[in-house]
């Protein structure tokens, strides 16, 4: 059967899934179209809810470095040494290479 990928222990066929998806999309879109009309709001109505604060457009956008705060906060003890390891110093690049070379030589020598 074309499109069916056998992985040895599992199976996956994108085409059937897509077929189901199309059917479901028609059904769901039908339900969706039963709803009220879509309005692009402007003025006060279209402003994001900010508990009554007035903000400029630029400030509303959450910046990339603030995203995933909870994750980096929870894994602080993992990230601090990891960031420290990436010094950007060419000497360290070479040292890491030498270290790995030594380890691989020891492991390969012990085969």
């Amino acid at each position: 059967m074309i499109g069916t990928l056998e992985t040895g222990y599992g199976v996956w066929s994108a085409l059937y899934w897509l077929l189901g998806l199309v059917v479901l999309f028609i059904i769901v879109y039908f339900i969706y179209s039963l709803g009220g009309k879509t309005v692009k709001a402007s003025g006060d109505k279209g402003k994001p809810f900010l508990s009554g604060n007035e903000m400029e457009k630029e400030k509303i956008h959450v910046k990339a470095s603030n995203i995933y705060w909870g994750f980096t906060e929870a894994l602080k003890s993992y990230y601090t040494p990891l960031k420290g390891g990436h010094t950007g110093n060419i000497n360290d690049y070479v040292s890491w290479f030498v270290v790995v070379l030594a380890i691989v030589l020891i492991l390969a020598g012990g085969l």
Partner: peptide, 10 residues
């Protein structure tokens, strides 16, 4: 100086 030439890091 290699320790100063590192604007690219992390």
């Amino acid at each position: 100086d290699a320790s100063k030439v590192r604007r690219l890091r992390e």
